[in-house]
Amino acid sequence: MWRAIASNALTFFIVVLVVISGLLAWGRAEYSGPGPLVDAACVKVDRGASLSSVSRVLETSGVISDARVFRIGADYSGAGAGLKFGSYLVPAGASMVDVLGIITEGGQSTCGREVNFRIGVNSADVILRELDAATGRYLEVVKFDPAVDVAPQTYLDAVADADLRYRVTLAEGVTSWQVVDVLRRADFMDGEIAAVPAEGSLAPDSYEVTRGGDRAALIGAMEERQVRVLAEEWAERAPDLPYASPEEALIMASIVEKETGIAEERRQVASVFVNRLRKGMRLQTDPTVIYGVTNGEGVLGRGLRQSELRRETPYNTYVIPALPPTPIANPGRLSIEAALNPDDTPFIFFVADGTGGHAFAVTLEDHNANVVKWRAIEAQQGQNAVTGVQGN
């Protein structure tokens, strides 16, 4: 009898072990295998949310197959206590391991709504946009100019969300004065900017910031990035350039930045100015003269007057036979790269060609012919400014 009882007990124990082993194998497969999510989705983790509540939300929304398995796996790995509030993009088929990593190691949110405060040459825009999880692209919700427009109610409602993300995007060619002037109107940032940074010292780029972030700290980050960009590009510069220092290259880059907005032209434009420096010729470029008139404080908004083209200032390259003393804007990496690795061309002239680009020339005769063509286009457009290097 006892032998039969022992045999049954052993059989039962073996069955239990098999069941437990099966459950463990199933749990491991569920935890590390592909998840049920068919399309990418945004997952929101509320501030202060528990692992248990997050697990239930993930299961209900179809991101994971089983909340208990997710919770057990998170507890076992020790990562369950590291939840970070925010909205996160979870790709299709993400395993529980992947999902746990996204919501505990993701740092900044990667999904949901975002305010992009864009500082441009002519204006600043506040853009509220939302990530479309299916396409991975941001869709514009509302856009306005904080200098002239009243903030729309949609924007005001959005900024009440603690999960809303913020970034500041600095366009190429903006002056340091413009950056400071616009940042002082950024209502989601705090702190004072003591002084306008040196011209050219801010790197055009997109910077993620936090609500209540310090304006001066953001300026510092822009300066640090520009120092790094200039150092990297200077180390890769072409030989025998007519620059005595990286600072002179930065001045040239700012001129290139203001002369063309076409990326493919930057190296050609740089080659014209480098050729002129090598020949001892004046640069004769309007953007430097304009900077001498405005000091970088806003946009001129009109054509240059003949008196301004003749007036001797440190920035009037129709008069001075050298680079101006400072940059005339904050150039981006592509313009810095162009200034330090210009195309090898014989060109010493260029003028607008009516397409947004420029016509380049080696001889004054060819250049004057290009100017005549541009003047005809200009007359049709009702403009009165020549863009490019002149032949006088």
Rank of each mutant, 00 (worst) to 15 (best):
W177N: 04
V174R: 01
V179C: 04
E232G: 01
E232I: 00
M189Y: 04
V209I: 13
V209D: 14
V227H: 13
R215A: 00
S176K: 02
G191E: 08
L170Y: 07
R225I: 04
L170R: 07
A221L: 12
A249R: 09
Y243W: 12
V227E: 15
G191C: 05
G220N: 11
V229S: 07
E247P: 01
E233N: 10
M222V: 02
E233A: 14
A244E: 15
A216M: 06
P204N: 03
G173M: 05
P239V: 06
E172C: 08
R211H: 05
A171K: 12
V227Y: 11
A186G: 06
P242V: 06
V168T: 13
A244T: 15
A249H: 07
V196Q: 02
E208T: 11
V227K: 15
L241C: 12
D190F: 06
V174W: 03
E236A: 15
G220M: 11
V227L: 13
L183A: 10
Q226S: 03
M252T: 11
V196A: 02
E224K: 15
S206H: 12
Q178C: 01
E236L: 13
E248K: 08
V227A: 15
P242M: 05
V227F: 12
S176C: 04
P239D: 06
E247Q: 12
P246H: 02
D181H: 14
V168A: 13
I251Q: 01
M189P: 11
A221P: 02
P239I: 04
E236Y: 04
E224R: 15
A235M: 09
M252E: 07
Q178E: 12
A244R: 15
V168I: 13
A195C: 09
P204C: 05
P246E: 05
E248R: 07
V209F: 12
S176T: 05
A195L: 11
R237K: 13
E172K: 10
R215G: 02
Q226V: 00
M189F: 03
V174T: 09
E233G: 07
V227Q: 15
R185C: 01
A217S: 14
L241T: 11
L218F: 02
Y207C: 11
T175R: 06
D240P: 06
P197Y: 06
D181Q: 13
R167N: 13
A203W: 06
I193F: 03
A216N: 08
A221E: 14
S201K: 09
D190A: 14
Y207F: 10
V168D: 14
R184S: 04
Q178P: 01
A249V: 03
T175W: 08
R184K: 10
G212R: 08
R215C: 00
G213M: 00
M189S: 08
A186T: 03
E248Q: 15
E172V: 11
M222T: 01
A186M: 02
G220F: 09
S201M: 10
G200L: 08
R225A: 14
G213E: 11
